[in-house]
Design a protein around this nucleic acid. Structure first.
Lengths: 235, 235
DNA sequence: TGGCGCATTATGTCTAGACATAATCCGAGG
DNA sequence: CCTCGGATTATGTCTAGACATAATGCGCCA
């Protein structure tokens, strides 16, 4: 079958959003404009926009128009709540911060990077009411997010900061249990060898790696929740 | 706005699928039939069916018709692979099997059950190439799945068996790290106190609890992977 | 009996209209 | 300057057609 026209229209707008040309809150072309641009009936562009709504990339408001949707909260991405929202009395401290040319190990964590690409490496401790709650060891590709090089991450922790700025297309989480080594145990105020929940999260924009984070939680202080549902749908 | 007609049509079919009247592989009414039944234009029922396809409840084949989709594999539910597919040389053994009236503890795990409801309690060990790989402690509500009472679970482990038969609408996973107690350590062939990944999965059909499983993996032999993506969409 | 090709059929996409509805914009009146 | 209400506008839904396409299955022919 020839490629449906509504698919072409949808992909054009997807491209604008995922490439960053259109940012959250920006207006996307109205039905009228798309009808004129592509020379199709209104139902056809309506279908394209409806599909984008279903995918969560676009929100539409009568009379106002169609807009790029805010990216889903980390909460929705996986049950991993945004730390600032969930941990009571959350604070964080940036323990290390370095910009460097990606090493072999960095490449292994982030995936295919161009030769000589620079990365930002961060080590952050998250506290809840003065008690250490998690350690975050993160790499950010400066190819994908150049503006991260000038960010101190004092205001917002890197997870939150990135999620607000960088549109992503793909995310992977790997969760395992591990025993705390002595360094980790000291930083988290727990016994060496005690069980920890280790989560590695990687995100991509298209084929381009964006960030890789390893977050370690004391096993007795945290759990990850994932909820999924199958129909009835929104609507 | 008055309730859209395509929504009413969609929900009618959703109801047939989720209530179990239509099972995976069954034919759903054709566009023609729905047009005649509801007195609407074909595009309207087409929209309803398209939404069901997007939700993964229905698959459509030209000339053949529309059919109830096979439920997603456990693989897709969460990155938790179906044990039979992923563990090389998988075998399982039912260690305990009991039918009883739900106790207070059973109620706490499964959620709201009618008074006097019966449950099936199972304890299953999963092996990979002769080595213990996981312990599964599961409750099944016999209100939701009466046919489970007569099933031995020798052929297929309970997770696989249930997934093939019971349509679900909601699933929740909680993942945490814990130290193995002596009993668990003995059954899994690991040291007491060693880290384990504990996953509790609960599923519902509508408001009705279906099953609750607690699966314990040795921390060094397993990890859970979750992948999510945001557009480009299928199609 | 067996295999091939074509008619049939259900879905997939699209059009050019129509009316409904929510929300914004803007002007009139206070 | 502020507020209320109506005109405007973009989206939401729907119709009655149309043509395209894939796949089934039947009949024809060997």
């Amino acid at each position: 079958m020839p490629r449906p026209r509504h698919t072409a229209i949808r992909e054009q707008i997807e491209g604008l959003i995922l490439s960053g040309v259109l940012k959250p809150g920006d207006r996307v072309p109205s039905e009228q404009e798309l009808v004129a641009e592509h020379g199709v009936a209104r139902m056809t562009v309506s279908r394209a926009l409806s599909d984008l709504v279903a995918a969560g990339l676009v929100v539409r408001r009568r009379k106002a128009g169609s807009f790029v949707a805010a990216p889903p909260s980390e909460e929705k991405l996986l049950g991993v709540p945004d730390m600032r929202e969930t941990l009571p009395g959350h604070a964080h401290a940036v323990l290390k911060r370095a910009v460097r040319v990606a090493s072999g190990a960095d490449r292994a964590r982030l995936g295919a990077l161009p030769k000589g690409a620079r990365v930002l490496a961060l080590l952050v401790r998250h506290d809840s009411q003065g008690v250490p709650a998690a350690m975050e060891d993160r790499l950010v590709s400066l190819d994908a997010v150049p503006e991260a090089a000038g960010e101190s991450f004092v205001e917002a922790p890197p997870g939150t900061w990135l999620l607000e700025r960088v549109p992503w297309t793909e995310a992977e989480h790997r969760i395992r249990a591990a025993a705390a080594d002595t360094g980790m145990a000291a930083m988290l105020g727990m016994a060496a060898g005690a069980p920890c929940l280790v989560m590695e999260r990687r995100t991509w924009r298209g084929d381009q790696p964006v960030t890789a984070a390893r977050i370690t939680w004391p096993g007795d202080r945290h759990e990850v929740t994932v909820r999924s549902s199958r129909g009835p749908l929104r609507g």
